[in-house]
């Protein structure tokens, strides 16, 4: 049972992840762009934030920077279509705990998340 925030400019993705994670028993909020996301982060104080890297307006990376500026503490998982390992490393060095590549492989996603944040995602139904 954790608080999750999904940030993605595509509403379908947001609602999908919301349904999925809610089905796993978590509390999910969504945001379509950076400003809203940051406000929600300050309000709701989620445990995990899913950030889409490529968004119009504030990019995922910018949001991360803002987060550290504001001292918001949360686990960040970046969602991106980029498969380049180097880029992933870059994210990790900036503080992301993991990277999810799009398109999501739904069957594997659970295990991937379990690896990244075992406390949150292990032993899901």
């Amino acid at each position: 049972m954790a608080k999750l925030l999904v940030v993605d400019d595509e509403e379908d993705i947001c609602s999908l992840l919301k349904d999925l994670f809610a089905g796993w028993g978590h509390d999910v909020s969504t945001a379509l762009e950076g400003e809203t996301a940051l406000r929600l982060m300050e309000l709701e104080k989620p445990n995990v934030v899913f950030l889409d890297r490529r968004m119009p307006g504030m990019k995922g990376l910018d949001i991360m920077k803002k987060m550290s500026e504001k001292g918001i503490q949360a686990h960040v998982i970046v969602t991106t279509a980029d498969v380049d390992e180097k880029v992933h490393d870059e994210f990790r060095s900036l503080g992301a705990v993991g990277v999810l590549t799009k398109p999501f492989e739904i069957l594997k996603m659970k295990d991937q998340l379990a690896d990244m944040l075992p406390l949150v995602f292990k032993d899901q139904e």
Binding site: E10, D12, I13, W24, A81, P103, F104, I106, L107, E125
Partner: peptide, 19 residues
């Protein structure tokens, strides 16, 4: 790029339903 999102939703929603 364009395909990935719709695809994700298809699979995702199906999974959700499955679960």
């Amino acid at each position: 790029h364009e395909m990935s999102n719709p695809l994700t939703v298809i699979g995702g929603q199906a999974k959700v339903r499955l679960e």
